[in-house]
Design a protein around this nucleic acid. Sequence first.
DNA 1: GTCATTACTACACACCGTGTCCACAGGAGA
DNA 2: TCTCCTGTGGACACGGTGTGTAGTAATGAC
Lengths: 238, 238
Amino acid sequence: MDEGERASAVMSRRERLRIETSREIEAIALRQMAAGGPGAISLRGIAREMGMTARAIYSYFPTRDDLVTALISGIATSLGEALESATGAVPDNDPGGKLLAWGQALRQWALTHPESFRLFYGHPVPGYQPPEDGPVDRTARRVCHELTRLVAAAWPQAQHLQPADTSWSDLHPDYVAKVQADLPDVPPAAAALALRVWGRMHGLVALEIDGHIHPVAGNPDALHRAEMLDLVRSLGLA
Amino acid sequence: MDEGERASAVMSRRERLRIETSREIEAIALRQMAAGGPGAISLRGIAREMGMTARAIYSYFPTRDDLVTALISGIATSLGEALESATGAVPDNDPGGKLLAWGQALRQWALTHPESFRLFYGHPVPGYQPPEDGPVDRTARRVCHELTRLVAAAWPQAQHLQPADTSWSDLHPDYVAKVQADLPDVPPAAAALALRVWGRMHGLVALEIDGHIHPVAGNPDALHRAEMLDLVRSLGLA
DNA sequence: GTCATTACTACACACCGTGTCCACAGGAGA
DNA sequence: TCTCCTGTGGACACGGTGTGTAGTAATGAC
């Protein structure tokens, strides 16, 4: 089997069709979610739209939650790629620019996929949470870690922003381990500051995505830009 | 007792019972929501819990959305009261303290009623949004307005935080009208700064409520406190 | 005390969703 | 060729919303 597969094609026709159908299901689910929130995802609705029997969908995703989990996985990589490509486009000797690009990319991605943003950062499904250490956790940690690196670059100028008595015990052991492994010179206060920066970047975007900025700000773009510039400057990276 | 009732009764016994039942329905709905999210609210479930027929509930709330709307109304006043009482406890000559109290109260309220926080700041029901200019809008605007007053107090020292070219056109006309009516001396840049402060206060709390802080920070309390202290200090109110 | 109103019950119904079972057709792969 | 996989078509149990209709009991006004 292994031989035949490897010789003729990487995947058999069946496998390809199956994956294609899976992608189509996920795409429709994303559309449904964009139209009516996570609760609007319906296996039967997808089946109708695809001209299939509802029963057939269950051979792809045994449960609605499985579909949602798969969706979140794709969303997580999408967000991760957006952030990485945005920061990657800025030279390494410009941490302030990287941080700015990060903030802009986060908002842009959120505005483009608002429901994905909600699904990723909010509660995905009424009552159900994704498995421990799933793609959400991993992306979130990767995001945290990258932000920590960026903030660490500003640490010499930004020390005064975080209480000096911040200790590793104020952080989660897993996070501590990752930081200490990859950035041995970073003190706990810098890591804590990174988390605060994360929160600061999240705030305005979350408000905007949930429709709370629109009724007060006519120009959310400028508002967000001002906040990011202030953030970068406060870190001494202007 | 007829006498006593009639003498002091603004409401008849029937009216009182009806209101009491309404309250009980809402209380159970809040419990259901706290247990399983907004989607877990079920009129039939409430009826079961109350020992009533499902049919009877519909004479109180014609639709599930009506119940949710009523819930949001109560949530909005609860949040408003929490914030107002917190800032009210700090003397007027201490705007920094008021801002700090505001931030702490917001987080405390959110931690106490996480589902209420989500319902108020997130999308309440899959696909449905509350009526325009409902209690949510009104409370949100009142909150915005109060924050604007607090930030306005810091404006002399905080001017450099917001681009000088911020104009009224960067804000929503309704918000502009309210600010200009109540705080005639406040420039548009100060109002925009207030919105940014709002976003900054929202960020960490939203992340924490949605469970994203817990896996990285062992001491969210200290993290939030540091952020609030930094915020107040950056506004020159330390 | 009489009598209408009101609150609620008990039973229908139509319609939607999830998740599961079945027998059976038809194409893909060995 | 023959088997396995994918999908069909129909049924099912169970849950939800929202709407009917008939009847009972208490309330409140006269």
